[in-house]
Design a binder for these strands. Structure first.
Lengths: 151, 151
DNA sequence: TACATATTGTTACATACGTAACTGTCTATT
DNA sequence: AATAGACAGTTACGTATGTAACAATATGTA
């Protein structure tokens, strides 16, 4: 539909397009880990961060996965209740807690990363290689901008 | 940091990267309309949809801007309270309401689209033309996939 | 040592959200 | 005409969110 009043078109506005695509892409995957384990997104991200890096503080998880500290705090609490994660106080600085996955946590992490890889393949099929390459290269440019301007 | 346990890396996972970039890009613009008018994102989107198309039903707004009907319903209510929008019942089907901006609404729309254009220019400056072109082309591929698979 | 400031992580509060249930209206079938 | 189903839009409810205030600890400076 052509604009009547102005020449602005939401359909062409990058923030809108980016958001819509992100919701679409992320929701399909979120449905998987939500259905299988009842995880929230912050919980999945925390699991993924700890699974790949082995041991981190809550603050590091937040930086690594770009999450607000309250989100991390709540996700850590939920994963701890599930017994997928354990805390250990730092000996030098008692404000700091080192977080680590339990055996059960690692198991869940492995299963979920398998789902993630399956989903990546599905995306390749759905969006096509050219599309994904373009997207990835565009995202890289945004990520560089974020690093400069403090994302 | 290299993964210790598995070979999965959140940093490379497209849903994560897409989400993070979308949050970064959208938040910067959201800050503008939130600071200036106290608008929420659904309200801005509804305003943008009505501003560019002139007259729509709530359902059409939802389709056009990919929003859940409860979001649209609440945004319409808020814009109506502000007297930026008025409703008119359809004469043939009394379930349907035609939504239209008031003069004040159009004025705000014009101002906000100006901000949107400024922000687009800022993005060009921040991310660079090559990056934006790649991003746009990648998003197009996603949008085509969404159209096929029902986004 | 004492005091101000910064930092890690948690919590209280207000707000935003989606699901599901609902109201009112229209359409199709009988 | 009557009934069942579909549809537009609203609302109630539980949950997720960010802001701001907070507790506990650490650091720097006098």
């Amino acid at each position: 539909m052509r604009p009547i009043i102005g020449d602005f078109d939401l359909e062409q506005f990058l923030p809108f397009r980016l958001n819509r695509a992100a919701e679409f892409i992320a929701l399909r995957f979120a449905a998987a880990y939500k259905a299988k384990y009842g995880l929230t997104r912050p919980e999945w991200r925390t699991l993924a961060a700890l699974g790949s890096s082995g041991r981190m503080t809550a603050k590091e998880v937040g930086v690594h996965s770009t999450m607000h500290k309250t989100k991390v705090s709540r996700a850590v609490f939920a994963l701890e209740e599930r017994r997928w994660l354990k805390r250990a106080q730092d000996e030098d600085d008692r404000r700091v807690e080192h977080l680590e996955l339990t055996v059960a946590g690692v198991k869940a992490y492995r299963d979920l990363t398998r789902l993630a890889r399956d989903y990546s393949a599905e995306l390749l099929d759905l969006v096509g290689q050219d599309g994904l390459l373009a997207l990835s290269s565009g995202l890289l440019a945004v990520e560089e901008a974020m690093a400069k301007r403090g994302g």
